[in-house]
Design a protein around this nucleic acid. Structure first.
Length: 296
DNA sequence: GGAATAACCTGGATGC
DNA sequence: TGCATCCAGGTTATTC
């Protein structure tokens, strides 16, 4: 499941290949991959053909490639989306939805393939708007612009312009469980189910603890653990359980070997040795140690 | 306005 | 072997 570290690995892989490249053709093979695009496949193809890509930028789980100061191709990988770099004319990938043929002045011709099994991911052409704080829109570009579809989400915890004070204030004023808050992309972006569970385990906080019940010291500790978990996962190439997440070359990450709580139901907690439990939560699962992470 | 929940989707795993 | 059911979860629309 692509969360911040996985999307950043993809962005870093795309950057050298697409920066300065020209889109010579666009082929939409499944229009369901354009659910965020207004205008349909023909509009998407015609609008991008001939445009020059200026960068690969990321905020949270959103990735975008500006094609001018006012427009960008926005990508969200959803649950199973992949952005793959392939040789021109390479065989169609399994679940391939969209293919961009690009021409780079140094690297030559390449195919950028968007493949997505569960079709939760999408591409779209979107307008760029100024960031309210004047800082760069995301990692990968100094331009203080962000797609309208991304403008409503908060900066991610690894962003130098992340507003920790705003994060603490949002946590303090809500009665919702802290895991729900972590998954709210308008509070802090880039955190999904895996890294929420891992961060809460590291900070020894029960996922259902109301935000308002957490002392500032605990919120600060949690934020530090979120940043540490994300950094470590990024360094290890992200988390791969199966073929659902791979980098632009189709390779898996290694962070699954470093997980302490997520997906370890019944296995001993690495800290106290008692079994990790799994409970249903928001149509998904929470994994935690009931001994180390007690309810307040 | 804030909070909670359902729906969208595909394929692997599991049970019968 | 084949079929039915469950499960995974990010985002958003809907409901309370």
């Amino acid at each position: 499941m692509p969360e911040l570290p996985e999307v950043e690995v993809v962005r870093a892989g795309l950057e050298p290949a697409v920066h300065g490249a020209t889109i010579v053709s666009v082929d939409v093979r499944d229009e369901r991959a354009l659910t965020r695009h207004t205008g349909g496949a023909a509009h998407f193809e015609a609008h991008l053909t001939g445009r020059r890509i200026a960068a690969a930028v990321r905020r949270g789980k959103f990735l975008w490639m500006p094609v001018s100061d006012d427009e960008a191709v926005v990508t969200h990988l959803g649950m199973s989306g992949q952005m793959l770099l392939r040789a021109p004319g390479s065989p169609e990938e399994r679940h391939e939805r969209i293919r961009l043929e690009i021409e780079h002045p140094e690297h030559g011709d390449l195919s950028v393939v968007f493949a997505d099994q569960r079709t939760f991911g999408s591409l779209a052409v979107d307008d760029l708007v100024d960031t309210p704080d004047g800082a760069a829109g995301g990692r990968g570009s100094a331009l203080a612009r962000v797609p309208t579809q991304v403008a409503h989400i908060a900066r991610d915890p690894l962003d130098p312009a992340f507003d920790a004070g705003r994060f603490r204030a949002r946590v303090a004023r809500t009665s919702s469980g802290i895991k729900r808050v972590l998954l709210d992309q308008t509070v802090a972006s880039g955190i999904g189910n895996i890294y929420a569970d891992e961060s809460l385990w590291a900070a020894r906080i029960h996922p259902e603890t109301p935000g308002s019940a957490l002392p500032t010291r605990a919120v600060n500790r949690l934020l530090a653990e979120v940043q540490a978990v994300l950094e470590k996962a990024l360094a290890e190439g992200g988390t791969s359980f199966d073929a659902q997440y791979v980098n632009v070359n189709g390779q898996a990450g290694y962070f699954a070997h470093s997980l302490n709580a997520y997906g370890r139901t019944g296995q001993p907690c690495p800290r106290c040795g008692r079994p990790i439990v799994r409970v249903s939560f928001m149509n998904r699962s929470s994994h935690f140690c009931p001994h180390c992470q007690r309810r307040r």
